[in-house]
Design a protein around this nucleic acid. Structure first.
Length: 250
DNA sequence: CCACGAATAT
DNA sequence: CATATTCGTG
């Protein structure tokens, strides 16, 4: 009944959703002083990321220069959101933009998702290639992906069947989410999250590079209704999947 | 022109 | 190896 996932069920899991990318500055702060729940209260941080390499010098709302986007670190939690999103729109409809919207992670770009999606697909493929057998598939390299259960239907389909079926009506979640509590980005960071964990340090540690890394942390309120719901449904063995999408495989 | 995705670069 | 960026295609 239970799977053997869950590497570190940190409070973050329990915390509602919505995560935001925090700035490199903060990331560095974490890196330097590990165990400190320094009130980063700093909410004034905006993502340097929204910076298209060029143009935009007019509107005056985007810093637009001098800052480049940091490498995004996909934490298990973030990946979970990713998988949840993909699972619910159906892997068939899972394209970067849609996924990005469903995830509702501030600062997440389509490119970020596209890149991750590409890798995720490879992972799924690899998994099929020897899923039950031993032999080199699913190795140590898949840690991240292994941290989230694969919704059962992502695989297979070597043949190309009609997986086109009904797409649940709650798909437009993205928009629902947005008009639910859409707060301004800046406000999201205002929360005095007490549960900020240091797993992030782990990820930072993996980065031997000197480039600043953007990490994510669970933020505060914000969308928790529906997203949370579908997150629960992820558990296999329950009523799950059928409501979500076609379990068409043969 | 935009978005996707495979290939390629860092 | 993980993520970003490029590039061809639809």
């Amino acid at each position: 009944m239970r799977d053997e996932e869950e590497e570190l069920p940190s409070p973050e899991e329990l915390i509602p959703l919505s995560q935001s990318l925090i700035t490199p500055h903060l990331a560095l702060a974490f890196d330097l002083r590990s165990t400190h729940h320094r009130n980063n209260g700093n909410s004034g941080h905006r993502l340097p990321q929204t910076t298209p390499p060029q143009a935009n010098s007019s509107a005056g709302d985007e810093p637009a220069r001098t800052l480049k986007r940091q490498r995004l670190v996909w934490t298990p939690q973030l990946h979970k959101r990713f998988v949840d999103a993909v699972a619910h729109i159906g892997i068939k409809n899972a394209v970067p933009k849609t996924i990005m919207q469903l995830m509702s992670v501030e600062g997440l770009t389509r490119e970020n998702v596209a890149s991750h999606l590409q890798k995720y697909r490879l992972y799924l493929k690899r998994m099929q290639s020897g899923g039950g057998g031993r032999g080199g598939n699913v190795g140590e390299s898949d840690h991240l992906f292994a941290s989230s259960p694969v919704p059962a239907h992502f695989l297979q389909q070597t043949g190309r069947q009609s997986s086109d079926h009904f797409i649940p009506s709650f798909v437009p979640l993205a928009e629902t989410l947005q008009h639910q509590h859409h707060q301004q980005p800046s406000q999201l960071l205002h929360r005095p999250i007490s549960a900020v964990k240091m797993d992030q340090s782990l990820f930072l540690a993996r980065q031997s590079q000197q480039q600043p890394v953007a990490i994510v942390r669970p933020s505060s309120l914000h969308l928790h209704s529906q997203v949370a719901n579908y997150a629960n449904d992820l558990e296999p063995g329950a009523k799950t999947v059928l409501t979500l999408f076609p379990t068409r495989q043969d």
